[in-house]
Design a protein around this nucleic acid. Structure first.
Lengths: 231, 231
DNA sequence: CGGCATCCGGGAAGATACTG
DNA sequence: CAGTATCTTCCCGGATGCCG
């Protein structure tokens, strides 16, 4: 099935080659959804509203052929197949950070659209301001749908893990979208909590501090550069 | 003509939005070709073998609508139209660097394909190793086809300008491809010079040192990660 | 000649239905 | 649940032609 004549840029530039590998529609978003650990086919479909089953199949095949991800069958108790990034696949994160930092400045960016959990936690890693965190030390738990994440801040570094947790200094429960509304949209925690979109347990002052640790870059203005150097 | 119903990811993620803007085929390569200054339509066609005129027109329209580039008419002596990145458009360079660093590690990367001057000088900015440069101070001139570039190294930083130059410590003349063969492919300058693909004028020892300042990252191996964390 | 507009063929993306 | 099959739509790529 996999045509050897796939459409490629015939270009030695490593950037062009990267686009050959992950430049097709949906490919980067599939990788984004796998950044915090393996998922199964139906999870990917659920987390990527808009991708159709056949396109998802093709992307998974292509990314596997490129060495970006692997498919693995879990041991017999639940013999389900999952897709998982390779080491090299996970090392694509700087691409997401560069695209995210740049895209967030777009005059056309609309932050009110649907938002996945992976996007939220990748954005935390991208926008985290170590200076604002200072010597803060905290474990923040998240319940996003059926998934559990833990964000730990210590010594000015932030780590994210997708896993169950027993305790946390603060626990946020709700949608990734409402978390984004608070962290990036400036919505007060109080408003979101009273409207029922989000629940907060634990140290409320810490929660307030946490949501202020992720400053967005300024919007760009549409203006041509000054110089006029022409060939 | 520009349909308002262009195919978009309906996703608040800034990375997804960036893909909405520059994720279409050829868009990033058009931006790459404009990173060192404005070009005209036919220059872009010449530097992007494989793009057809109508697709190039569509990309230029789309990138202009997105605020990534502007079109400008030069003053009457040569009333020719050029395309030029906006400030925000030029600030997309970290995207190219992240894609380039990652793509260069691909097991499938083929460095023997055609290579544009913009790719070469972007790769210099991406792969430059300040530690190897030490306190080197040098101006290196390049004659790539009809274009002239100057690379200056000083205080461990490298700058690239597309402009004419009077003097330089070393001048390389030839194709971007043969420069890449030397810098990234390990071909000796002597070999390329004697085969007529490249000419070197000036300080030969400095030329040898310069081409060693751009180490490539290691190739990735195809291997799944160790942990097996599943939802 | 530069900068498109138009037309066409092939193929990729999207939606829906179906199957092991 | 995890895909496959089918059909439609739209984009990409190539060729041609217009028009200043």
């Amino acid at each position: 099935m996999s045509e050897n004549t796939r459409r490629r840029y015939e270009d030695a530039c490593a950037t062009a080659h990267a686009m050959d590998l992950v430049g097709e529609r949906w490919a980067l978003l599939v990788m984004r959804e796998l950044m915090f650990g393996p998922k199964r086919f139906s999870d990917l479909r659920a987390d990527l509203p808009g991708v159709s089953a056949n396109v998802l199949t093709q992307r998974l095949e292509g990314l596997e052929a490129a060495g970006v991800l692997t498919r693995r069958k879990l041991p017999p108790p639940t013999p389900v197949q999952v897709y998982e990034l390779t080491d090299w696949g996970r090392e694509s994160e700087p691409i997401f950070q560069a695209l995210g930092r740049w895209g967030a400045r777009s005059p056309l960016h609309d932050p009110t659209l649907p938002f996945s959990a992976s996007s939220l936690f990748l954005s935390f890693r991208t926008m985290f301001d170590a200076g604002r965190a200072g010597d803060l030390r905290a474990d923040i738990g998240f319940c996003i749908g059926r998934e559990r994440y833990v964000v730990s801040i210590e010594h000015g570094t932030l780590t994210v893990e997708r896993r169950e947790f027993d305790r946390a200094d603060v626990i946020f429960s709700g949608t990734a979208r409402s978390m984004a509304a608070i962290v990036y949209g400036g919505a007060p925690i109080e408003t979101m909590a009273s409207s029922g979109d989000l629940a907060v347990e634990g140290d409320r002052a810490l929660a307030e501090r946490f949501v202020g640790l992720f400053p967005l870059p300024e919007r760009a203005i549409r203006r041509a550069p000054a110089d006029a150097n022409v060939i």
